[in-house]
Design a protein around this nucleic acid. Structure first.
Length: 125
DNA sequence: ATCCAGCTACGTCAGCCCGC
DNA sequence: GCGGGCTGACGTAGCTGGAT
């Protein structure tokens, strides 16, 4: 199976998205997560909707319907997994940038504290 | 040149959760 | 209840950099 190289996978975007809580928060107790409700769009190319189940009779037709349903489910899950990973990466990036900001902020506060200590400490004479 | 470990992206399955 | 979406976990494959 040939796989595209990472640099050209094309499913990575840098667009900023809102992060919202999801059921995962319940699992961790306090962790806001990266759930993004996107509108479900049209099926990818190549997907053909089968006839309505009511028109199926023979075991063969039932088997074909089951196979079709499975393939459809796998395809949807494939897309969902991609989207899930994309959101997760976005979420991690968001957390990392927040860490960077907080580290800078923390450093400034420490410096400010040292300055104030210097000012307020009694001078030996 | 070959081997190998580490990383990344992917597909699939299982389980949870939610809306109907 | 049931169907379907979301996501953690797992296995797999390709790529890369370092060691030999």
């Amino acid at each position: 199976m040939q796989k595209p190289i990472m640099a050209v996978t094309g499913d990575e975007t840098d667009e900023e998205t809102e992060l919202a809580p999801s059921h995962m928060a319940a699992a961790t107790g306090d962790m806001p997560t990266y759930q993004i409700r996107a509108p479900t769009t049209a099926l990818p190319q190549g997907v053909v909707m089968a006839a309505s189940p009511g028109s199926l009779h023979s075991p063969q037709q039932l088997a074909e319907e089951a196979t079709r349903k499975r393939e459809l489910r796998l395809m949807k899950n494939r897309e969902a997994a991609k989207e899930c990973r994309r959101r997760k990466k976005e979420y991690v990036k968001c957390l990392e940038s927040r860490v960077a900001v907080l580290e800078v902020q923390n450093k400034k506060l420490i410096e400010e504290l040292e300055t104030l200590k210097d000012i307020c400490s009694p001078k030996p004479d």
